[in-house]
Design a protein around this nucleic acid. Sequence first.
DNA 1: CCTTGATGGCTAACGGCGTTAGCTATAATG
DNA 2: CATTATAGCTAACGCCGTTAGCCATCAAGG
Lengths: 186, 186
Amino acid sequence: MADQRQEPGEPPTWGERLTPRAREIVHAARDLVEESGAEKLTMRSLADRLGIKAPSLYKHFPDKQAVEVQLIAQMLDECAAACEAAEAEAPGSLEAIADAYRAYALRHPHLYRLATERPLPRHALPDGLEDRTAAPLVRACAGDGELARAAWAFAHGMVILEIHGRFPEGADLGAAWKKGTRALIR
Amino acid sequence: MADQRQEPGEPPTWGERLTPRAREIVHAARDLVEESGAEKLTMRSLADRLGIKAPSLYKHFPDKQAVEVQLIAQMLDECAAACEAAEAEAPGSLEAIADAYRAYALRHPHLYRLATERPLPRHALPDGLEDRTAAPLVRACAGDGELARAAWAFAHGMVILEIHGRFPEGADLGAAWKKGTRALIR
DNA sequence: CCTTGATGGCTAACGGCGTTAGCTATAATG
DNA sequence: CATTATAGCTAACGCCGTTAGCCATCAAGG
């Protein structure tokens, strides 16, 4: 009955560090999502890929959402890292950070959608992760929060419309991207 | 057996004009979505609201997606109308059109999400509807397609992040909106 | 007037989904 | 050696979209 949290030690409580097996499960879930999209992430398909049955997953996570939260956290973490790297290479350049953001999102479209198209489970996310993801952009905007939010909106709108194939067929999205980022800088 | 299309007259074939009963169904579906979100739109909940059983819906629509397509078409149509009205009142003003777009989206958040967060079923949509929705913005950009796409990306990114509550709690989103639209104009 | 066929309901059921209850084998611990 | 925690299992529930097949109503035609 160690499924429930224990008061004293809280050994591998959900949301905190994961057990090795839980990490394997998250890894398999991520592969599934990146390959086939979040709709194909099913407790049964996930279990299949691990060679077990669906109910066994509940020994490691309380529900499906808890697995998804791990994937969302991964996306935020990696996206933050990508932006931080861009910042390190071209300090203060909003354009460099935006480019890194777009490149990451387009490299992981299904994961990006998963992390982005549902209410953020803030309470279940590591403390400060959301802020960390936003920080490089805010710094590049020299603390102008409104500009940072506008830039984020443009970047997100661009990549999510791109991912959904909403733009006309032959459109030069790289050009639209440049136009947008440059308009927001000056 | 008139469920299938008939060759000669094609009386009320799907996608074309709807029968009165089908229109009632779409109306109920819309109410459901606007009240509770697209996740709550269920063939059973929809039937309930109409006082019938779920399988009866299949006398009027081939599947659930066909009902959703009608809602998506409504959203595109109404959004286009809102932008056209703004255009008529302030010809050539990108800001006016953008404001109308945002106002419409925020007035119908669940419908906007439904129409926006899944691959567009282009083949099932009335001809020209997608273009019509884009047209006011393109006109306001004086035919600069790249600018129009950048502006659309900003507007969509802004409202969808707003709808999902992604921005920090106290943020002045009206100010961010103004900053973004104005940056994209000059 | 009676038949025919279309219309639009219905019930029963299927397979897939997330999830729960309860069993069990193995491994670690006293 | 006995106990207990771990991590698997099967069976099942309720909800989902959807299909098959039945039946009442009603208009049109002989």
